[in-house]
Design a protein around this nucleic acid. Structure first.
Length: 110
DNA sequence: AGTGTGACACTGG
DNA sequence: TCCAGTGCCACAC
C-alpha cells in the first residue's frame, strides 16, 4: 500500500478542513501541499465531490487570484460569498479583498 | 483500457 | 493586470 496514493480527494478534504477560520487558500496551494502541484484542477474536481461531505469548507478555497470561481457550484448564487463574509472576508465582485493577507498556505502554516 | 473532463496554474503577448 | 492559449493529472464513464 502506498501511503501517498490514498484517495487524492480525501487528502484534499483533510487539508480543506484544516483551513483556519476567516482564512482562505488556493487550489494550487492545496495541490502543492499534497505533492501534486500540477493537479490543482483535481482539487477543484474534488471540491465538487465534497458537496456530499458537509465537513469540507469548500467556500474557503478559491483560485490563485482570490476569485470565487466555484461559487456557481454552491446552492445559491452568492452562498459562497455569504459564508466568507460571515467569517470576516470582504468580497467585491467575486474577488476577495486583501486576498494575500488572509491567504493560508498549508505548506508553510501547516 | 481509452476517452472526456475540469471550482487551476503558468506562459507569452 | 488582463487575455488567450497550453499543459496537467487524477477521476468518471
Amino acid at each position: 500500500m502506498k501511503p501517498e496514493s490514498i484517495n487524492f480527494f480525501n487528502q484534499v478534504y483533510q487539508v480543506a478542513k484544516l483551513i483556519p477560520f476567516g482564512r482562505v487558500t488556493s487550489y494550487g496551494a492545496i495541490a502543492n501541499y499534497l505533492g501534486a502541484a500540477r493537479s490543482a484542477r483535481m482539487v477543484g474536481y474534488a471540491m465538487n465531490a465534497s458537496h456530499n461531505m458537509e465537513d469540507v469548507p469548500a467556500h474557503r478555497v478559491v483560485n490563485r487570484k482570490g476569485l470565487l470561481t466555484g461559487k456557481h457550484h454552491f446552492e445559491g448564487t452568492n452562498l459562497m460569498q455569504q459564508l466568507l463574509e460571515s467569517e470576516g472576508v470582504e468580497i467585491i465582485d467575486n474577488q476577495i479583498q486583501g486576498f494575500e493577507k488572509i491567504f493560508w498556505n498549508p505548506s508553510k502554516e501547516l
